[in-house]
Simulated assay, not measured.
Amino acid sequence: MNRRDFLKGLGFSSLSMLVAPSLWANTLSTSAGNRRIVIMIELKGGNDGLNTLIPYSDNTYYSARPTTAIDRSSVLTLSGKLGLNPALKALMPAWNEGELAWVQGVGSPLEDRSHFEAIEVWDTAELEGFKASDGWIAQAFPTHPLAGVAIDTNFGPLYGSTVSALSISDPQDFALNGSNIRALTSNSPNKSLQHILSVQAQIDMLASTLAEYLTDIPAAKENFGAGSFGQSLNKVYMLIASGLNIPAYKLSLANFDTHTNHRARHTPLLQSLAQGLASLRTNLMRIGMWDEVLILTYSEFGRRLKENANKGFDHGAASVQLALGGQVKGGFYGEYPSLVDLDERGDLIYTTDFRDIYSVIRNNWWNLGEKETGQLALI
């Protein structure tokens, strides 16, 4: 059995960095009400912002999308100009309570439309992301023994060359199986053996810690929805409810690369997103932890303004992202891009640099720098 198969058997994908097991106990323990948690949700493939937060008062939107635009009569009105896709109806209570913010025109100076290179830029907050080694969250927590947990196949912004992060498929399986591993020691000078023993010791300590904290956590009352996204949200809920001091979580919702048949594919994705987040909000409110959580979506790019011949959209540029949480100052942030003044490819020109959103999270939420007071101060 190779290392990957062994770790999969634990419900465990990988650690991005090893840390001394002795650091775990104190740093991962915290009292309720003393945490600032971020949940990063990657909308994989490039979400279409125009059919998410809809400029229903702009006729250009309808002329550019004769078969794919959302009918005015169906739009969930938020203002005299903008409204939500009806598939996002489950988020309306959060909007009405002032806990949902929409950041408009979010994009990057990078003109590349490659999925792989674009998402590296978003994960690292570096325009040459493919050359960078550390994610932007890992950079924010260089000494934390567990900067984050990814319920996903990749670390995204949690990855760091000198920072510890965990990628697991199921926290309970990992706690159960990993705690059966006995930590061993050896005086051998063999570096490979010492590395294996270090991994073994870390798995033992982490699994034991999770097993302790995952005992008697309050069960979720609201269902997170079917499918892998709902399951991932449930696992994040469990870890938050456990009381562990983990600053960040990363998960994803896939299949937003809608080159064809956009309406039929996009609608169920938005429904899954809205239902899952609404349920997470309700469940965290019931256990008194909603004010400790900030949820942010991100996607490598948006879609083109004009629909293509296959009733879909090619890769675009600017899009919208949502921020949701008990301490979020709900409303609109940034400027909605012009539907007339486009770039040379026919794409929306971004008005909000995504890195500015990260700065607000880093400084205003985690208090790691001078407080941001500008137009993006949504917390």
Rank of each mutant, 00 (worst) to 15 (best):
P145V: 05
N308P: 06
L100H: 08
I295H: 04
S319I: 09
R35D: 04
S198I: 09
F224M: 10
S192I: 11
F12S: 07
E111Y: 04
G105F: 03
L376R: 01
L78I: 11
L339V: 04
G160I: 08
F224C: 10
R355V: 09
A175H: 04
P268L: 03
T124F: 10
N308H: 06
Y358F: 11
S79E: 11
L214R: 01
D314R: 09
L176K: 12
S14T: 11
G334D: 10
L10Y: 08
D48G: 00
G243H: 06
M205H: 09
R36Q: 14
L158D: 13
A32M: 12
E120N: 15
S74K: 13
A69C: 02
P86T: 05
P247V: 02
T258Y: 05
G148F: 01
R4L: 14
E335A: 10
L239I: 13
A64M: 07
D343P: 02
G316S: 05
P145K: 01
A147Q: 04
R36T: 02
L348N: 10
I246G: 00
V163E: 02
T52N: 08
L197V: 06
L23Q: 14
N261D: 15
P145F: 03
D216W: 07
L348I: 13
G49F: 08
V163G: 01
G288W: 02
Q327L: 12
W122I: 12
K311H: 14
T68M: 04
M205S: 15
F301D: 04
T67M: 08
G316V: 12
D123N: 15
S74P: 03
A132S: 15
D48W: 02
L84A: 09
W290K: 06
R36D: 11
P66T: 14
I349F: 07
G107R: 04
N26E: 15
I119T: 11
T77G: 07
L339W: 03
P337V: 00
N223F: 12
S232D: 14
Y62C: 03
P268V: 06
K44P: 01
